[in-house]
């Protein structure tokens, strides 16, 4: 093929004119398969839960087979069954359930306080430009600062105890939520803003009825990150200072077990941490998302 620019006009291919036709009646499609349902096996295999359960069982079986087959030192890697029994024992015959409750309680207080504070900050930022500047400055500075690094200071200011934990939890939630909410608000489309003002919304009602729902994907993303940071901070803080504060939570349970060389207890504690994490991320947040941004078709 030559390039078009060198091609002469008269050497261009000409249209091939051929007769028209029209089919008066079309033969019926014979496949009988215009829209067939997929078979049962195809559909069961398409269920994610089934495939994931199979994988999970395989992993557990591999763990068990490895530890039993090679007779691994239980101090280094206890069998799955032993770890599982340890979890069961600690939950129903030990005090693990109270330790979990202790951790969750502190977490909820810290998370709630962090959310409330970031709401205040955000309202201030939407009301005036100085507040908005302050938020972007403070988040840029404090968001990269791991909350756990503040724990030494917190213990100095608030002593050993729940107050210190709550302080660092607030720090871990506040900036992540404020940052992404602030970004979310700034990205609300001009059209939606104008619609809100068109219908006479002002002040707090404008924020609650237009900005918050419109920025909900960002807000939820911030809350999820905030939760993830808070959860990590709490477990870390309990590991570090659980020893010094005496009455510990879940992190302290793991620390204690590892100090006593009860590795199955460490695994039991990790199982509990994973379970709580899954419940919060895949049940709590998932449901909130399904009820809101997914239903509204706004998921980012």
């Amino acid at each position: 093929m030559s390039t078009s620019s060198t091609r002469k006009k008269d050497s261009l291919p000409e249209l091939v004119i051929r007769p028209e036709f029209e089919l008066s009646d079309i033969e019926q499609a014979q496949t009988g398969d215009v829209a067939r349902k997929l078979s049962l096996v195809e559909r069961i295999w398409n269920i994610n839960g089934v495939r994931k359960a199979v994988i999970l069982l395989t992993l557990v079986a591999a763990w068990q087979a490895y530890t039993v087959g090679l007779d691994v030192e239980p101090l280094m890697l206890p069998r799955f069954t032993i770890s599982f029994v340890a979890l069961y024992e600690a939950l129903f015959h030990g005090d693990l359930i109270y330790k979990i409750w202790f951790s969750v309680k502190v977490l909820l207080i810290g998370y709630g306080a962090g959310l409330a504070l970031s709401a205040v900050l955000i309202l201030w930022a939407t009301a005036n430009r100085f507040g908005s500047d302050f938020i972007s400055m403070a988040t840029a500075m404090f968001n990269p600062l791991p909350a756990i690094a503040l724990l030494p200071l917190a213990m100095l200011w608030f002593g050993l105890g729940t107050a210190s934990l709550v302080f660092v939890l607030i720090h871990s939630v506040l900036w992540a939520v404020a940052l992404s909410t602030h970004n979310g608000f700034e990205n609300v489309s001009q059209t939606l803003r104008m619609i809100g003002r068109n219908y006479g919304l002002h002040g707090i009602r404008y924020v609650a009825k237009i900005l918050v729902p419109a920025a909900l994907p960002s807000i939820l993303a911030g809350m999820k990150i905030g939760w993830a940071f808070a959860w990590r901070t709490l477990i870390g803080a309990e590991l570090v200072f659980g020893a010094s504060s005496g009455s510990g939570g879940l992190g302290w349970f793991i620390f204690e077990s590892s100090q006593n060389l009860e590795t199955e207890g460490v695994f039991a504690g990790l199982f509990a941490v994973i379970l709580i994490g899954i419940v919060v991320e895949n049940v709590v947040f998932r449901n909130v998302e399904l009820k809101t941004v997914n239903r509204w078709g706004m998921q980012s």
Binding site: L12, P13, E14, L15, V16, R18, A29, T31, D33, V34, A35, R36, K37, L38, N46
Partner: peptide, 19 residues
Amino acid sequence: KEHLITATYRVGFDVFPAD
């Protein structure tokens, strides 16, 4: 997800150069 769809059934035609 649920169905097998037949989009076209025994369609035939010719395209010539410059068409």
